[in-house]
Nucleic acid binder design. Structure first.
Lengths: 175, 175
DNA sequence: ACGTTAGGTTCAGTGACCGAACCGACCGTG
DNA sequence: CACGGTCGGTTCGGTCACTGAACCTAACGT
């Protein structure tokens, strides 16, 4: 989406936000990053995104300070993309968007998000009803729901079947 | 964005939601509808969107049950587009997205959103800290902030300078 | 009769996205 | 050393969506 020249005339923080994350695939990349995906190839197979588009999105997100590119081994040189504070701050938006999609367009529950401390499901505003607090991202545990039918050919989908905290790096076993 | 064939393979309510509202301009149309814009021409001048795209978006949003097309006068026949429950349910998403954009990419406050009952500014999760409740959309009052520099040539921007409740129809005075 | 407004549709041009191929650096193996 | 495989890209032609301008219809007002 990000054209800049059009939305720039909009005096609105929503329009500004959409200039950054409104392009196709961008929010899905951020979602995967929240789920713990960090490596180029994992994004690629899990999203089914064209390689060129993924490279462009990772570059844009890095330039905007939403992801950080980080060398995690030297030989062979490999980088991973990790969410920054600014990227993590998109969690309320993604949670709200997901809740809307779930309530209005999905039959059945695909995933549950629970408060790690007590197991209570996260409420519509990101809160834990039991503890009465808003749950920080790193204290959210994601686990699959009954409606989820993962692609068995995709190691990332398989790795996401195991309950895990958000942001925690994904461990993909090899096929 | 909405291609359907691609995102359909994604087992994720976020991806489903983005199929519907992820295309360019779509969320801005919904935002304007929340602000009280209802007429084709008001969307057109306020968004600066190409006419063909606006027509396409209004049709899609109507087909998805997010807007409702309603005849409001017979001669000449004129229709307005009003948010349905499903469309109003996007408010938490837009609020979260706007808050993110404001905190990370905008210097200064463009608009304030307050609880109509007490005047307290709406918190980051859509709540009124004073009343301790989540504020329903129709009880939110929007007013301009110090950073807002509206386009004086646009009657819709001018009409939005007056504090008003969300969803309340916009009254555009003629130039 | 004429201009204006609201709400579109049509159309050529452009830019973004798509899928497939290609590429280079670095492994591990024989 | 040659060979194959993996990872992380870049390149390229085709397609599709968005853009901006022009055009159209119906119903005013004067």
């Amino acid at each position: 989406m990000a054209l800049g020249k059009d939305y720039a005339t909009q005096e609105c923080s929503i329009a500004r936000a959409l200039e950054i994350v409104g392009e196709r695939w961008t929010l899905l990349v951020v979602r995967d990053a929240l789920y713990g995906v960090r490596r180029y190839n994992d994004f690629l197979v899990h999203l089914g995104i064209p390689r060129a588009v993924l490279a462009a999105r990772l570059q844009t997100l890095t330039a905007e300070g939403i992801l950080e590119k980080r060398r995690y081994q030297e030989s062979p040189p490999r980088d991973e993309y990790v969410l920054t504070e600014r990227g993590i701050a998109l969690w309320p938006t993604l949670r709200a968007l997901g809740a809307w999609g779930r309530d209005h367009f999905v039959g059945g529950r695909l995933r549950y998000f629970r408060h790690a401390a007590c197991g209570t499901e996260i409420g519509p505003y990101g809160e834990c009803a039991l503890c009465g607090t808003v749950v920080p991202v790193s204290d959210v545990v994601m686990e699959p729901g009954p409606g989820l039918d993962p692609d068995p050919a995709d190691p990332v989908s398989r790795a996401l079947l195991k309950p895990k905290r958000l942001l925690e790096p994904l461990e993909t076993e090899q096929a």
